[in-house]
Computed example of a mutant assay.
Amino acid sequence: MTVIGPSSTNSLDVLLHHSPAIPQGSAGMVATVTIPPGDPGSGPHRHSGPVFGYVLQGEILFELEGEEPRVYRAGEAFWEPGGDVVHYQAANLRTDVESRFLVFMLCAPDVPMMTYLDADEIAARSHLRVQSPTT
């Protein structure tokens, strides 16, 4: 007998985001990001298109503009819309191991995959950042 669909013994967790904004002519990219123990990760930046991620190892402190910072652990998925939304941090909360995550990104044509903010833009957008004890 042919079985169609997931096995009854498998576990299936799904992160679904309806209707992400996908720039015309985008290209897909898959990357693995490794953050050394205790590292703060990349500085404030934005992506040209939507990003879906999955933590493979460790724990990351993930902060998007307009949202409370959140901890994602190995086995958890995350989402960011890209475009004008700033990604403030993906810091490794573990000091004993690397943290690694896998991302699938849709990148707008002729736009860098990551664009970093300068100090003036960070200051101008500070009112959009959720203030919490972790920021």
Rank of each mutant, 00 (worst) to 15 (best):
D39N: 15
T95D: 15
N10S: 14
P37A: 07
H127G: 03
P109A: 09
T34P: 02
G49F: 02
A74S: 06
S126Q: 14
G82P: 03
G66R: 05
L102G: 03
P133A: 13
Y72H: 08
G58R: 01
Q57M: 14
G82M: 04
G75L: 08
G53M: 08
V30D: 05
A74K: 02
G58Y: 02
P6A: 09
I122Y: 00
P44Q: 10
G5Y: 10
E76R: 13
L15G: 01
D120N: 11
D118F: 13
I4W: 00
G58E: 01
P81G: 15
E80Q: 15
T135S: 13
H127M: 01
C107E: 09
V3C: 14
G28A: 14
S7P: 00
D13E: 10
N10M: 07
G41E: 02
H17K: 01
S26K: 05
L64E: 05
S11A: 00
A21D: 03
V85D: 04
T9A: 07
E121T: 05
E65W: 06
D96A: 08
E59R: 13
V14N: 00
V3L: 15
L106K: 04
Y116A: 12
R94W: 07
P69Q: 13
Q131F: 12
V71R: 08
P69I: 13
V3P: 05
P69L: 12
E98C: 11
R46P: 02
F62I: 11
V111P: 01
H127F: 06
G43E: 11
G43L: 11
V97C: 15
D118R: 10
V111Y: 08
G82V: 03
N92F: 15
G25H: 05
D110L: 01
D118L: 09
D84L: 12
P112Q: 09
E65D: 02
D84K: 10
S42N: 04
S7D: 03
E68V: 13
L106M: 13
R94F: 07
F101T: 01
T135E: 10
F52L: 10
E67W: 08
T115M: 10
H87R: 02
M113P: 07
L16E: 12
R125A: 03
T134P: 02
L12P: 07
Q131M: 15
P23D: 11
G58I: 00
G25M: 05
G58T: 02
I4R: 07
T135V: 15
M29K: 14
V130E: 08
E67G: 01
C107L: 14
A108W: 01
H47R: 02
G58S: 04
E63G: 12
P20L: 06
S11Q: 11
N92W: 14
Y88G: 01
A119E: 09
T95I: 06
P133M: 00
G66D: 04
E121L: 09
L106P: 02
S99W: 04
M105V: 11
D118A: 13
A90M: 11
G43R: 09
Q24R: 00
L102D: 04
T2A: 10
S132E: 04
Q89S: 13
R100G: 11
D110T: 09
L102W: 06
R125L: 07
V55A: 07
P81T: 14
P40Y: 05
L12C: 12
E59K: 10
V85R: 07
